[in-house]
Design a protein around this nucleic acid. Structure first.
Lengths: 222, 222
DNA sequence: TGTCGCTTTACAGAAATCTGTAAGGATATA
DNA sequence: TATATCCTTACAGATTTCTGTAAAGCGACA
């Protein structure tokens, strides 16, 4: 089993709870905690320099901001920076977030090894997840393995995301067309943009642009 | 100090943490917990029938749904139902939510006695809040007392909210006008609706309807 | 070379949005 | 009663959205 683990979680009460589980249930001897991303990063770097690196990072995604100025404010940035030092570190994200698309993104873009939703069975799921990751498995949370929710997803390419973002920012299609042209992104005719957006209307069953943006915001894609 | 408290929180690890704080730091002798709103309600009703009522409810807002079918799925419904039995019960909401408008709504519409944001100083804030509520005070969280964020709020009336909701659902202003007329809500001319929405554009610095809905969704007002 | 299929683009028209101005109605005050 | 103010409504015009059709561009392949 893992012998040295770092827990990054700003929510004090949960923080203590996780450590208790790691210590008592999983039986990990060396556990360190951090309430800020920057703290976590520094602890990690020091351990790595001292040739006693952590084997696993368990991190939340959102860290509330307070008086302390932080260079890193989200778990994603923490993962990115830590992977730059030690590419093969195992990472488990442990968050409130339960929207499939967001979680998928973490596996796709950041190659995390496991994900656990905060919730009723958090203790069991967390210990399962740690076991699996230790055996080199990729541990998806229930929301992704559950076929009833996993299949009805809409696949969006980069341009789709750009269009949704720009529309949500209130730009007209003419303005978006010019932006795309400046950035040499094709297709960039107003007609193609219309077509793309119309397809999004179909995909998300939206009546118009406003409705589309509202739906996509609710799904957490924006 | 309170002698009998009910904690409703589905997130297992936090649940245990809160109870530990109540027991060790605050020193409350009788603490019961519930992971489901329905459970909480039943425990509460039984205690009330047995003439040994709870004096304080500490509850989360969002409860993840799972296989169990629940009649109540959010803390708000729980508060409403419990207040119907025992109107003077003290209620502290303890949630992730940190958007001023949402929290304000809880104080205005549901007369909660205190609010604590899950976060770094949760333990201290929670004990403070319990002390204050015991002294019959209304305990606002930092996000509401902090003048830097409290003042720049936009006040929305019922019609504003209706318009925002309908626009987010993709209805045209003509359709909205007809709906308002059916429900005998005035003003309901397309011109007045235009004016109202234009004012919202100004208030939220939105370029158009789509932008407006995106902003309002981000603020958590919809 | 030709043609099939796909994507991109051009264009056009009906509908909706957004922004003005101006008129009508209600209320309060002198 | 007269006047001022505020809210509601009507209307108009420029712009944008949305939905079609049709043409042009391009790679695959016989």
């Amino acid at each position: 089993m893992f012998t040295k683990v770092l827990v990054a979680e700003d929510y004090e009460i949960a923080n203590q709870g996780i450590i208790k589980v790691l210590k008592d249930t999983v039986g990990i001897p060396q556990i360190e905690e951090a309430k800020y991303c920057d703290d976590a990063y520094l602890k990690f770097r020091k351990a790595h320099q001292d040739m006693a690196p952590f084997e696993l990072l368990i991190t939340d995604l959102s860290f509330k901001e307070d008086h302390k100025v932080q260079t890193r404010t989200s778990g994603i940035e923490l993962i990115r920076d830590i992977r730059n030092i030690q590419a093969d570190i195992k990472v488990i994200v442990y968050s409130q977030e339960d929207r499939p698309d967001k979680i998928n993104m973490l596996f796709d873009k950041y190659n995390i090894n496991g994900y656990v939703c905060k919730g009723q069975d958090a203790i069991k799921e967390l210990t399962n997840c740690i076991d699996g990751v230790y055996q080199e498995k990729t541990m998806l949370p229930k929301v992704l393995t559950d076929s009833s929710t996993a299949n009805q997803m809409v696949l969006l390419d980069d341009l789709d995301m750009i269009l949704l973002e720009e529309l949500a920012k209130g730009f007209t299609k003419k303005e978006i067309r010019l932006k795309l042209k400046e950035q040499k992104i094709t297709p960039n005719s107003e007609s193609s943009i219309d077509k793309k957006v119309s397809k999004l209307f179909d995909d998300f069953k939206a009546k118009n642009t406003t409705h589309l943006v509202a739906i996509v915001k609710d799904l957490g894609l924006l």
